[in-house]
Design a protein around this nucleic acid. Structure first.
Lengths: 120, 120
DNA sequence: TTAAGTGTTTACTATACACTTAACACCAAT
DNA sequence: ATTGGTGTTAAGTGTATAGTAAACACTTAA
């Protein structure tokens, strides 16, 4: 599996190529961590930062926060709360879907939107 | 919101009424923690145990592990992994469903089963 | 050549998590 | 009166989390 640090470094350097505002130090300052910390994280010497810092990083790098969080093995707290609020129904649904291919899950997503519209 | 400890104590005492094997000490021994720890957890003096202990506790008390984990604000690692494996599609789906009523989510669950059967 | 910038290395820290150990007070039976 | 059971209290422990601070080595630009 792709590591959080490697991915972040790649994306940051891609941006840095066209804009010096994306140096390690500048980005670290913008997300509110010490440069050394970001350096170690990007090289996998330390585990990924906390959820708030990952959200800030996603915003700075223009990445999807859910993807970045996933690379860190975490789940956004709003999703956590939604699941914890109705654990049984969500647990069943996720287990039902986890082994299905992407297009099947998207079909279900489509069904969800239809059900949602039927609500109003 | 109902607390983890209160819920566990209530369920354990319900079982203990008909069977002395469900004393705090016995249950603590069965799930592999010190009695004092379970005592403090049940009275909300300490935060809920780790996921493995919660699974063991669910098994001993005959409870749904996902429900017990949810009361502790946690999500089973198999669900975590499923979500982290395809973060975007699951994030969208969960956010789509979180504000819908139970019966709507169950409709989607039904759709998921149908899609699944269409796979084979 | 010195100043400002780059990323890196090492060492350290404060807080939270997930418990344990030992002792306490109480009750029931022997 | 002591043994075996109940739950409780207080204090301590090892590990992980989530970082910081300071110094190092190196590369441009003035």
């Amino acid at each position: 599996m792709k590591s959080f640090g490697t991915y972040v470094r790649k994306q940051r350097e891609r941006l840095r190529a066209g804009d010096p505002e994306y140096s390690l130090r500048k980005v670290a300052a913008r997300i509110g961590v010490a440069p050394s910390f970001l350096s170690n994280v990007e090289r996998g010497q330390e585990s990924p930062p906390s959820e708030p810092k990952i959200h800030a990083l996603a915003s700075v790098l223009g990445e999807d926060p859910d993807v970045l969080l996933a690379l860190a093995g975490k789940i956004s707290t709003d999703l956590q709360q939604a699941i914890c609020h109705r654990p049984q129904v969500f647990a069943r649904l996720i287990r039902e879907l986890k082994d299905l291919p992407d297009h099947a899950v998207e079909q279900v997503e489509q069904a969800a939107r239809q059900v949602r519209e039927g609500q109003w």
